[in-house]
Each structure stands twice: as structure tokens, then as C-alpha cells.
């Protein structure tokens, strides 16, 4: 049952990992950070990634049919943004209390493995709260 810092260190063990954070997407606050920020500083990066995560979580275009997952929050599991130099994975953390938290990983495009990172991020997000 690792805490935020241990989880972030596990995330950074992934090949090509440049920076990671646990972010609250309602407030845009970084609860924990490691490595380097992708956007100037960690606070700005957290606020900006939170804005993207919130939109994905709230917009109807991404919400599955409520009949399949009645009112399950958040409806989105993860977001992937690819750039010419890197990947960003934002993995939503499911908790049994009311929260709005995701794990953000910034991955180098050449040395990172997107598929592997996505699977590992899922298991780390689950262990964070289990």
C-alpha cells in the first residue's frame, strides 16, 4: 500500500519517464510531483493537465452510455496526448470516497514505451488507493 511519493517513484522506473504528478482535476492542484515538469513548473503543468482531464471527464462526447456504467465516476479511464517529442498519459484514479484525482506521466517519445506505460500506470493507480 504505497503512498503518493512511492507510487510516483514506481512511475519513474518506466523507461523514458521524464516527469510525473498526482493531480486533483477539480482544483488543478498537484498533490505530489517527481522528475521534471513538462510545462515550465509543476504548478502550471498541474493546472493545465487538470483542465484537459476535467473536460474529458465532463463532456458528453466521452461519456459511455449510462445504461452500461450507471453514474460511474469518472467515466474516462485515461487520456493520451502525443507530441513530436513525447507522450502524456493521464490515468484517472478510482477511489471509494469522493475525489477527482489522476496520475500524469510525461514520457520521452524515443525511449518511452506507450503501451507498457499505459498498463503500468493502470496498476499503479489501483495500488495507490488499495
Amino acid at each position: 500500500m504505497p503512498g503518493i511519493d512511492k507510487c510516483l517513484l514506481h512511475v519513474m522506473e518506466l523507461p523514458g519517464a521524464r516527469g510525473a504528478a498526482v493531480v486533483d482535476w477539480t482544483s488543478g492542484l498537484a498533490l505530489g510531483t517527481v522528475g521534471e515538469p513538462s510545462g515550465g513548473d509543476f504548478e502550471t503543468t498541474a493546472a493545465e493537465t487538470a483542465e484537459l482531464a476535467r473536460m474529458a471527464a465532463e463532456h458528453a462526447a466521452f461519456a459511455p452510455d449510462p445504461a452500461d456504467r450507471p453514474d460511474k465516476e469518472p467515466p474516462v479511464q485515461d487520456l493520451i496526448v502525443s507530441t513530436c517529442t513525447g507522450f502524456h498519459i493521464m490515468r484517472f484514479v478510482e477511489t471509494t470516497f469522493d475525489s477527482s484525482v489522476f496520475l500524469h506521466l510525461w514520457l520521452d517519445r524515443d525511449t518511452g514505451n506507450l503501451a507498457l506505460a499505459r498498463i503500468r500506470l493502470q496498476s499503479i493507480a489501483e495500488r495507490l488507493v488499495f
Binding site: M1, G3, I4, K6, G32, V93, S99, V101, L128
Partner: peptide
């Protein structure tokens, strides 16, 4: 879990 306590407490 540690993570739950930290997320909730920081909140």
C-alpha cells in the same frame, strides 16, 4: 491505504 489517507487529508 496510504494513498487514500494522503489524498483525503491533502484535500
Amino acid at each position: 491505504a496510504d494513498g487514500e489517507l494522503e489524498i483525503c487529508h491533502l484535500g
